[in-house]
Simulated scan of single mutants.
Amino acid sequence: MPDIWFYHLETTPLDQALPDLLEKVAQKGWRAYVHGHEDDKISALNDRLWSYRPDSFLAHGREGDDLEGHQPVLLGTSGRMANKPQVYLSVSPTDLPDVSGLERCLIVFDGNDAEHLTWARGQWKQLKATGADLAYWKQNDRGRWEKMQ
């Protein structure tokens, strides 16, 4: 079972926080699969990754693209993880696929969305009951991540 880290968004919206998280994944040489349950959300994140900063580029693609299996970052709604990632990122309240064999699972949830927050709390309780190695990261007032004990 991978390390499972929960990221509680409070001050920064997902489309601004996700590029930074994905850059950290890429710095480790890992591939990532970003899983959402709404195609509109995945489309918006795809657009954002092309334009989040003018001086950088984060190679990525979407499920269904010809080269989906070769993408360092793959965005999708199926949970298939066709790019064989080391890191799975959940960005919507959706069933987690089998993440065994991965290095890390990141559950990124919006603290201002009651449904997403309730879902994340349920995931925490369920995973804790299985003995999974969990960590909880919360944004401070400046939007920086702080690991909570």
Rank of each mutant, 00 (worst) to 15 (best):
M1P: 07
D3L: 15
Y7E: 14
H8P: 12
H8Y: 12
E10S: 15
P13N: 10
L14F: 09
A17Y: 01
A17P: 04
P19G: 06
L21M: 04
K24Q: 12
V25S: 03
Q27A: 15
K28W: 09
G29I: 03
G29V: 04
G29T: 08
G29C: 01
V34R: 14
D40M: 01
A44M: 11
N46E: 14
R48S: 07
L49S: 12
L49M: 14
W50Y: 12
S51M: 07
S51E: 12
Y52S: 00
P54G: 04
P54R: 02
P54S: 10
P54E: 09
D55R: 11
F57V: 07
L58T: 07
L58C: 01
A59Q: 08
A59E: 11
A59Y: 00
H60M: 14
H60Y: 10
G61Q: 11
R62F: 01
G64A: 15
D66N: 13
L67I: 08
L67K: 13
H70R: 04
H70C: 00
Q71D: 06
P72E: 00
V73H: 08
L75Q: 04
G76S: 06
M81R: 05
A82S: 06
A82Y: 05
A82E: 03
K84Y: 14
P85Y: 03
Q86A: 10
Y88C: 00
L89K: 03
V91H: 09
V91N: 05
D95T: 12
D98M: 01
C105R: 09
L106C: 14
I107H: 02
F109H: 14
D110M: 02
G111L: 11
N112D: 12
L117N: 00
T118A: 15
A120M: 04
A120L: 01
R121Q: 15
G122K: 13
Q123V: 09
L127E: 03
K128P: 01
A129E: 15
A129S: 15
A129V: 03
T130V: 10
T130A: 10
A132C: 06
D133T: 13
D133A: 13
Y136R: 04
W137G: 09
K138S: 13
Q139F: 03
N140Y: 06
D141A: 15
G143R: 09
G143K: 11
W145H: 13
E146G: 07
M148A: 06
M148H: 12
